[in-house]
Computed example of a mutant assay.
Amino acid sequence: MNTATDNNATRTDSLHIVCPHCDAVNRVPATRLGQDPTCGKCQRDLFTGKPVDLSSARFLKQIERSELPVLVDFWAPWCGPCLSMAPFYEQAAQRLEPDFRVVKVNTEEAQDLAARYAIRSIPTLALFKGGREVARQPGAMDANSIVAWAQQNNRR
């Protein structure tokens, strides 16, 4: 977060938040994150309480332009552990937003991302901050474990 000073008057910290619907970049005061902010372009909610399914094209914008940490579930539709973890990941999304952007990447559809990030097993959780991967955890987890892992690794 950046604190700017303008003529000795302190402005509220604000963050760039990428819309999960239209990918527009919104500037949202940090104090308003928990007040159901909407996108200035499409007028839809910036936080839905559900993981956002991302294609390769949308993924890079979310991790590079959002000032929130981005939690990613790399998964595949044929993967049993991925499917069993899916409801827990949704529960974790409800608890982690608006402090995190929670997304899913189908490695079958986004094979370029799976290769780029060397995803060797699924499900794999990865945490991105400032466009860079800062933590990774392979294997299925329950909601409490996902939330704890994300919060712990966000402090680094």
Rank of each mutant, 00 (worst) to 15 (best):
residue 26 N to K: 13
residue 104 K to W: 04
residue 2 N to D: 10
residue 137 Q to C: 13
residue 21 H to L: 04
residue 7 N to Y: 14
residue 112 D to F: 07
residue 26 N to P: 03
residue 6 D to Q: 14
residue 33 L to Q: 03
residue 92 A to L: 13
residue 136 R to I: 06
residue 155 R to M: 07
residue 122 I to Y: 11
residue 5 T to V: 12
residue 41 K to I: 07
residue 95 R to C: 01
residue 63 I to M: 01
residue 153 N to I: 13
residue 59 F to K: 05
residue 148 A to F: 13
residue 51 P to Y: 06
residue 110 A to K: 01
residue 51 P to D: 07
residue 20 P to N: 01
residue 154 N to I: 01
residue 48 T to C: 01
residue 133 E to W: 02
residue 151 Q to I: 10
residue 108 E to K: 10
residue 139 G to K: 03
residue 123 P to G: 08
residue 154 N to R: 13
residue 142 D to Y: 12
residue 53 D to F: 15
residue 93 A to H: 02
residue 20 P to I: 00
residue 12 T to K: 08
residue 86 A to Y: 03
residue 101 R to H: 12
residue 37 P to V: 01
residue 42 C to H: 11
residue 79 C to M: 03
residue 68 L to I: 06
residue 131 G to L: 05
residue 42 C to P: 15
residue 18 V to I: 02
residue 33 L to R: 04
residue 79 C to Y: 02
residue 110 A to I: 00
residue 153 N to M: 11
residue 83 L to Q: 15
residue 55 S to C: 06
residue 123 P to L: 09
residue 62 Q to P: 07
residue 56 S to N: 10
residue 59 F to W: 04
residue 81 P to F: 14
residue 140 A to I: 06
residue 90 E to F: 00
residue 58 R to T: 06
residue 28 V to W: 00
residue 91 Q to C: 11
residue 47 F to R: 04
residue 129 K to I: 13
residue 93 A to E: 10
residue 112 D to K: 11
residue 83 L to S: 11
residue 12 T to I: 12
residue 120 R to Q: 15
residue 106 N to K: 02
residue 68 L to D: 04
residue 70 V to M: 01
residue 77 P to E: 13
residue 19 C to L: 04
residue 69 P to T: 11
residue 13 D to L: 05
residue 16 H to I: 02
residue 32 R to F: 06
residue 36 D to H: 14
residue 97 E to F: 03
residue 128 F to G: 12
residue 5 T to F: 14
residue 92 A to I: 14
residue 100 F to P: 11
residue 19 C to M: 07
residue 106 N to G: 05
residue 39 C to R: 02
residue 67 E to D: 15
residue 50 K to M: 12
residue 73 D to W: 04
residue 152 Q to L: 15
residue 12 T to G: 12
residue 134 V to T: 00
residue 30 A to M: 08
residue 38 T to I: 13
residue 119 I to C: 03
residue 57 A to L: 14
residue 52 V to T: 05
residue 123 P to Q: 09
residue 8 N to A: 15
residue 15 L to D: 00
residue 30 A to V: 07
residue 55 S to L: 02
residue 63 I to D: 01
residue 49 G to I: 09
residue 35 Q to H: 14
residue 56 S to R: 07
residue 41 K to Y: 13
residue 55 S to K: 03
residue 85 M to F: 09
residue 144 N to I: 08
residue 74 F to W: 08
residue 39 C to Q: 05
residue 8 N to P: 09
residue 146 I to N: 04
residue 24 A to H: 07
residue 24 A to Y: 08
residue 151 Q to F: 02
residue 106 N to Q: 11
residue 136 R to N: 09
residue 142 D to S: 11
residue 13 D to G: 07
residue 43 Q to M: 13
